[in-house]
Amino acid sequence: MAICTHHPTMKQSRTNGGRKKEDTRSNAIRQSSGISNHLFEALRALRYPDRARLLWVDRFCFNQDNTEIDLMFSIYSKATSVIIWLGKENPVTKTAFEVMDSLAYIICRERNGAGMKGDNISPFAMKERPSDCSLFLNGQDFFCFSFSRKGPKMYRLPRHGSLGDDAIFRFNDDRLWTEIDGILSNSYLERAWIVEEVAAAAEVNVFRGKSNMPWSVFWAAYLGRQIFAFKPHMASDPDASYGAI
Rank of each mutant, 00 (worst) to 15 (best):
A2L: 06
C4D: 01
H7V: 00
P8S: 04
T9Y: 02
M10I: 03
G18M: 05
R19T: 08
R19K: 10
T24K: 12
N27A: 09
I29V: 10
Q31P: 08
S32L: 13
S33Y: 08
S33Q: 07
H38W: 06
F40V: 04
R44N: 05
P49C: 07
D50E: 11
L54N: 10
L55Q: 00
C61I: 01
Q64F: 01
N66M: 03
N66Q: 04
L71C: 05
I75E: 01
A79T: 00
S81R: 07
I83H: 00
I84D: 00
W85K: 04
N90L: 09
F97T: 02
E98G: 08
E98R: 09
E98I: 14
M100T: 09
L103I: 10
Y105I: 10
I106L: 14
C108Y: 10
C108R: 10
R109L: 10
E110K: 09
N112T: 11
N112I: 07
G113M: 13
G113S: 12
G115I: 09
G115T: 10
K117H: 13
D119Q: 11
D119G: 13
D119L: 12
D119W: 14
I121P: 05
S122T: 14
F124D: 04
A125E: 11
M126D: 12
P130Q: 08
C133R: 15
S134K: 13
L135G: 02
F142A: 07
S146G: 11
G151A: 08
G151Y: 06
P152R: 13
K153W: 14
M154D: 10
L157W: 01
L157Y: 01
R159S: 02
H160N: 14
G161A: 15
L163E: 15
D166G: 10
F169Q: 01
F169E: 02
D173V: 04
D173E: 11
E179H: 02
S185V: 03
N186S: 15
R191A: 04
R191I: 03
I194P: 05
E197H: 06
N205L: 11
N205D: 11
F207Q: 08
F207G: 04
S211T: 10
F218S: 05
Y222R: 09
G224T: 02
G224V: 01
G224N: 05
K231M: 10
P232F: 06
H233F: 14
M234F: 15
A235C: 15
A235P: 15
D239R: 14
A240R: 09
Y242G: 05
Y242C: 06
